[in-house]
Design a protein around this nucleic acid. Structure first.
Lengths: 321, 321
DNA sequence: CTGTTAGCGCGTTCAC
DNA sequence: GTGAACGCGCTAACAG
C-alpha cells in the first residue's frame, strides 16, 4: 500500500503539496495538481483513513447496530438508515447483535474504539450499559425502535398503543372476544409496552381478561410456534391471536394450521408471504425503512451539534381475508 | 475522550507502562497494574483503535460486502460469516451494496481506506474493478457465491449444475416436459451459470428446448412476477417453473396463483414461507450460513498468509407437495 | 521493571 | 505556491 510519501516522490513535490492537491485546497499550481493526480492514479493511492481521522475530528463512518439481520423488519430498517447516510455522504458499518447482548457489547466497544462519528442502534434487552457508556463517552447515539431507561438519547419508535388498538379493534369488529397475544421478550421495551397496551385496550373493550391469553416468547420463529401451541392448549382456546413480529408469526401460523383449529392470526410487520398463505394474514404495518431513515436523519443532526427530539411513527392496519 | 496520557497522569506512571499493562505485557509490576487499571476504569478509557492500527499491522476488523441485506439468502450468509469471525476474535463490518455497483464501489473504497484486515464480498454484476483493485492493493479478498473473471481470489460457491439437475430431474420425474426458468441477471456469474446448466440438462433429458422458456429477471420480487407472467403468456405455457432465488419466487408464486394456471413452482433457497403456502414449494436448498462460515474461514486463512483453495458446496433437493 | 523516544500516515501551520 | 516540521494516540525498541 502506497503512502503519501510515495506519491510525493513520484510527483517530485513535497507531501504537503500532495495533501493539498488531494484535499482540493486551492493553494496549488495547475502544474503540480496535474503531476500529483497522475502519480496518485499510477500508484493506485488511497489515503489511509485511519491516519487521516487521527488528525481530523471526523471519520465519515457511522456505526449501525441491529438486533437481527435475519429479521426482515431490521434488515429493512438498516437499509433505510443506510440510504439516508449515503445521501449525506457518509458510510455506515452494520453490526449484527443477533439478539445477544454480549455480541452487542462487543460491537459497541469496537465502534467506540474506532471512534465512529455516531451510532444508531436497536438495543438488546438486558442491560443499557453499552448504550450508556457510548453516550457518556460523548459519542452521538440514536435509539431505534426500542427505548432504554436512563439513556439520554433520542429514540425513534412506532406508536405501540395505536398498533395494538388497530389490531384488537379489528378483531373485535370481526366478532372475537377471546384474543391471545404472542408477545416479544419483556426484556426489551417494545415487548413490555405491547403487553400493557394489550391489557389496557382489551379491558377498555370489555374483552376476555384471562391472563393466560398473554404468552411471552423470544421473538424468534420457534418461540412463536411454542407460544401458539400454549394458546391452543387453553380451554377454551382463543379464537384470534395477535403476534408481535413476523418471525414469530411464521411459527405461529404453522402451529395453528397444524392443529386444524380455526384461529384467526394477526401480525405486526407486513411481509410478502403473509398475503400468499391461506388464509392471508391481516397485519399492523410498520414502515421499518422509514423508521431507519428518520433515525439516521436525527443522528446526523445530533452529530452536527443539533438537539433533535424523539419521534413516534404511526402504524397502519391492513385488513385481509 | 481520554487518551493514554490521561491515564498515565492519573496513575502516576508513564504512557509506556500504561500501554504495557493494558496489552497484558508481563513486564509490569503488580502495583502499577493495579493503579493503571484503576485509572483506566475511572476515566472510561478505550484505546483509540485508529491510532493503534497505525502502529500495528492489523485492525481486527473484516469488511463484509453483501449484495442485498434484504435478501434472506445473503442475510443468512452474512450471519454465518460473522459468527465465524467472532469466534476467531474478529469483528466484522457489514456493507450493503443493495445490488448496485456504485454503492458497492463506495463501500469497497471505504474498506480500503480503513485498511481492514480483509474483505469478504458477494460481488455485484457490472465490473470486477472494485474487487480487483482490492486484490492489487494487497488486501486479502474472498468471493462469496459469485465468481469474478480476472480476479485472483478464492471463491465459495454452490454447485450450480447439481442444483439445476436436482430441480429438473425432480420435475421430469413428476411428468413435466415443458419447464420454464426464471433466471437471475446475467451480469452476475451465478445467473449466467444457471442458464447454461439449465439448457444443458434440459437437452440431455430431452425436454422442450424452446428458448423463450428462459426468462431473465433482476433478482427482485417484482422481476420474478414479471418473468412469471411472460412465461404464463406463452402458448403453450410451461407446466413447471424453476425460479432462481427466494425473492423472485415470491413474486412468481403470486403471479401464478393470480392467473389460476396449474403451474408447478420450484425455487432455489429454502424459506419458511415456502412450506406455508398452498401448494408448498419444492426447493433446492443452499445452506447460506454455511457458505458464509466457510468463506470466512478461507479469508482468515488468507489473512494469516495461507493459500486456501476455492470451495464448491453441494445443494439439496427438498421435495414437497 | 520502567521512562523515553521514534515512527505509523496524514493535515496543517509557519516560514520562505 | 510550496517545503519543513509538528503532533494526532499509540506500540515497541532501547536504555537504564
Amino acid at each position: 500500500m502506497s503512502t503519501i510519501h510515495d506519491v510525493a516522490r513520484l510527483a517530485g513535490v513535497s507531501i504537503g503539496t500532495v495533501s493539498r492537491v488531494l484535499s482540493g485546497n486551492p493553494a496549488t499550481s495547475p502544474e503540480s495538481r496535474e503531476r500529483v493526480r497522475e502519480a496518485a492514479l499510477q500508484l493506485g493511492y488511497t489515503p489511509n483513513a485511519r491516519a487521516q481521522s487521527l488528525r481530523l475530528a471526523r471519520t465519515g463512518v457511522i456505526g449501525l447496530s441491529i438486533s437481527d439481520v435475519r429479521n426482515p423488519f431490521f434488515a429493512d430498517a438498516a437499509h433505510g438508515a443506510e440510504q439516508e447516510a449515503l445521501a449525506a455522504g457518509r458510510v455506515t458499518m452494520l453490526a449484527n447483535a443477533d439478539e445477544d447482548s454480549a455480541i452487542e457489547a462487543r460491537y459497541l466497544r469496537a465502534f467506540r474504539a474506532q471512534r465512529v462519528d455516531g451510532v444508531l442502534m436497536s438495543p438488546q434487552g438486558g442491560s443499557a450499559e453499552g448504550a450508556r457508556s457510548l453516550v457518556e463517552a460523548g459519542i452521538p447515539v440514536v435509539l431505534l425502535n426500542r427505548t432504554l431507561d436512563g439513556v439520554d438519547a433520542p429514540v425513534v419508535t412506532f406508536d405501540v398503543r395505536q398498533g395494538i388498538e388497530q389490531a384488537i379493534t379489528h378483531l373485535r369488529d370481526r366478532g372475537h372476544r377471546r384474543i391471545g397475544l404472542i408477545a416479544g421478550p419483556v426484556s426489551v421495551s417494545t415487548g413490555r409496552a405491547r403487553v400493557s397496551a394489550f391489557e389496557a385496550i382489551r379491558d377498555e373493550l370489555g374483552l376476555d381478561p384471562a391472563p393466560e391469553l398473554v404468552q411471552l416468547a423470544d421473538g424468534r420463529r420457534g418461540g412463536g410456534a411454542d407460544a401458539a401451541e400454549r394458546l391452543l392448549a387453553l380451554s377454551p382456546a382463543p379464537t384470534a391471536v395477535l403476534s408481535s413480529n413476523a418471525l414469530m408469526s411464521s411459527g405461529a401460523f404453522e402451529a395453528i394450521r397444524g392443529s386444524g383449529a380455526a384461529v384467526e392470526l394477526v401480525s405486526f410487520d407486513d411481509q410478502d408471504w403473509m398475503r400468499l398463505v391461506d388464509p392471508p394474514l391481516s397485519v399492523i404495518e410498520q414502515d421499518a425503512a422509514h423508521m431507519g431513515a428518520v433515525a439516521m436523519r436525527l443522528l446526523l443532526e445530533l452529530i452536527d451539534g443539533g438537539h433533535p427530539r424523539s419521534v413516534t411513527l404511526p402504524t397502519r392496519l391492513i385488513a385481509r381475508g
